[in-house]
Amino acid sequence: MIRIPCPHCGPRNSDEFSYIGEEKRRPGPDTSPTEWRTYLYSKSNPAGWTTEQWFHAAGCGKFIVAERHTVTNEVRATRPKPRFERSNAGAEAGGGSS
């Protein structure tokens, strides 16, 4: 069990989170199949500090980015994962309704 300081909820047990994976840049739509498979399968899998995504399933329900040491399991920094920006053009102002 390791402790992850959630940027939204504070320190929590890792069993509240789902591990998502290493932070990597997703290739664009014009990528070649080989590049796409490299993105899918290749892992740096370091023994040391790594930056990865976790999902706080049993907490705030947000994706977060954590810097973790894979040998000691120490988590030295976390931050919210930048929110996916959606266009508000089509959103009805005050679109709340029951």
């Binding site: 069990m1 069993d15 789902s18 591990y19 894979t70 040998v71 000691t72 399991n73």
Partner: peptide, 13 residues
Amino acid sequence: DPYPSYSMRGSLA
């Protein structure tokens, strides 16, 4: 274990 690690420690959970 549910996350990658090179640590070989056991856990109560």
